[in-house]
Design a protein around this nucleic acid. Structure first.
Lengths: 131, 131
DNA sequence: GTAGGTGCAAAAGTTTTGCAGGCTG
DNA sequence: CAGCCTGCAAAACTTTTGCACCTAC
């Protein structure tokens, strides 16, 4: 699991990874903080931010840059798409087969070197649909 | 131009619209503020934010929720996709034909009511490529 | 004249960082 | 036992908002 030999598996980091793997809700850093405090009351928000950042840099988890004001995190590092509720901001997975062909198409139309793509759907979730 | 009869075309609003239409760089609110101050030194950042918000709510301009920490704005309200530089954050248009079919596909796979989609490419821009 | 808009400044929300001490490997 | 990591708090950064005055219509 340690991609980088300098990474230490502290109690905090382990707990963050463990809890993130439990949820399917694509939590924000503060969501994680609230969850983690139940099991480790003295954990600090700074530690949560630092670890989510480090874990996503090493590729152990994924940082989601979906719309909205906060970043979200996902323990599922496979390429997959998301739907975001325009009203409440909730994010869910959408298991549409990733279309890698669009990257080739895009490469023809730009002088940027294409690395990857993100496809995000915006919609209204069942809860918000019924007011 | 006035979609909403209550909207007034103040000097500030007019200037914001005029300058946004001139650039093709998808500026952030602060980028706009820097541009606008050259022609109207006393304009306030709050006014820039308020107007960009109002203009995008009425559909006169478009608010882009691309990755990164700041929102960006675009006077081109047509559906089109973007490439963002992973290094410097620059955003450029990518005139790939919009694929409305994916929304139908997505609708089959979720209980969210799909409203629209966003496709964003992440890459490295020519300037950053040559360090 | 009136109600929407402005500038200014303070506040709010999110994320980052400096520091002194703690713990992992 | 070196140096990565933590908790805490302050700071940084982005965006929103309250207020008194202003101005487009």
């Amino acid at each position: 699991m340690n991609v980088n030999p300098k990474l230490r598996m502290t109690k905090q980091r382990q707990l963050i990874l463990e809890e993130l793997r439990k949820v399917k809700t694509h939590p924000t850093a503060d969501d994680m903080y609230q969850i983690l405090r139940k099991r480790m009351p003295k954990i600090s928000l700074g530690t949560v931010y630092r670890n989510l950042e480090i874990l996503s840099e090493t590729g152990i988890i994924q940082k989601l840059e979906v719309g909205g004001t906060q970043k979200r995190f996902d323990a599922d590092t496979s390429t997959h798409y998301h739907v975001r509720c325009a009203i409440c901001g909730r994010v869910a997975d959408l298991h549409l087969a990733p279309d890698m062909n669009v990257e080739k198409e895009a490469a023809k139309l730009t002088d940027f070197q294409i690395l990857r793509h993100r496809l995000e759907f915006i919609g209204i979730c069942p809860e918000c649909k019924e007011h």
